[in-house]
Design a protein around this nucleic acid. Structure first.
Lengths: 192, 192
DNA sequence: CCCAAATGAGACACTGATGTCTCATCCTGA
DNA sequence: TCAGGATGAGACATCAGTGTCTCATTTGGG
């Protein structure tokens, strides 16, 4: 018998379907429902049976992205050790999802007006809290607000993913580029 | 008689029309041709008489954005004085166009595959040259490539514009936030 | 082996946006 | 004043994508 949506026959793996859709839409944000279905190796009819429409699909992808970012935060153990080390771990954990997250951010801007998923606010808060902790321990400067540093992190992650995608920088430098710029800036400091 | 597109009667000011469209699309990137026309106070038919289609309009807007950014580069006098000062002037000059440029960047990503306007490459080169000059004078660190610093600048400008639009940070802090983060980073340095 | 669930393929209507066209009207310069 | 260019309003066809539906087929558990 079925409990909650899981019948006896499970030909399509919803999670795998979502990840395939995420991968495709990361590359081509305007992909059609038909293209998404084909990419996942299923028919458009079946795709519609799992997600009422494009909107529902994007919403589900949004939750996937939130889960991925939450996992990254967990894995980075933001509360442990120095704030700088925590930030380095965070960027490293975010990297695999960076392209997908950039897609979701651009989609979110389109949802403007409608209420956004509360998960983003929670995540923003946790990242901002990391910056604030760094400020309180004296590691980070206090004239840049945690909110701005959080936004800047998103922006740099997006720029990094894009720059790599365009071949302007090497993929292996992702982490270093972002963390070094975010932490140290472009200015050549004296004590280095 | 008319020479090249400029007839005797010029009821619609093409430049003003473009700026109105830019303003609207900056706020609502999915705006319809009809909405663009209404925003400019003209009919859809007239809009089509000036721009063959949505694509042509976006292309024209792209050139407007390139012109604006070029003007910003000129006004910032990138070759004068220290690289840091030049960068501060550049960000200040870019600020008024930041939202519009962010729109164009997102549109450009959609044009992926087709050849992009050569103006962007020229601008990228000029900005990258500024960072390189800073590296050669010893002002900037050399472990972050000019190409990455250029991308990072775009990303931070976009994040700044977005953060202000969302009300997460104050508009008056735009310049300071971006330049300080880009130059000095979040880390609290010793000599400050 | 059998049945029910799940899927694939395709037809269909609907929608929103686009691009084209016509015609009446307005405006401006000569 | 007048002629021609420019505009506004609207009709129209087109197109792509979406959402719904049906029906035949496949699949896998009991």
């Amino acid at each position: 018998m079925s409990h909650l949506g899981y019948g006896r026959l499970m030909a399509v793996d919803r999670e795998h379907l979502l990840r395939t859709a995420a991968s495709l839409l990361t590359r081509k944000s305007t992909a059609t429902m038909d293209e998404v279905a084909r990419a996942a190796g299923i028919s458009r009819a079946t795709l519609h049976r799992h997600f009422a429409g494009r909107d529902a699909l994007v919403r589900a992808l949004e939750e996937l992205g939130i889960r991925q970012l939450e996992s990254a935060l967990e894995a980075a153990r933001l509360d442990e050790g120095g704030a700088e080390g925590a930030l380095r771990r965070l960027v490293a954990e975010i990297e695999p999802s960076s392209g997908f997250l950039a897609f979701l951010v651009s989609e979110n801007q389109l949802f403007e007006g409608e209420q956004m998923h509360p998960g983003w606010a929670r995540l923003d808060g946790r990242i901002a809290a990391l910056f604030q902790r760094g400020q309180e321990t004296g590691e980070f400067r206090i004239d840049l607000t945690p909110a701005w540093l959080t936004e800047a992190l998103y922006g740099l992650v997006g720029s990094g993913a894009w720059a790599i995608h365009e071949g302007r920088v090497a993929a292996k430098d992702f982490q270093y580029m972002i963390v070094e710029l975010l932490l140290g800036g472009a200015r050549r400091s004296v004590e280095k």
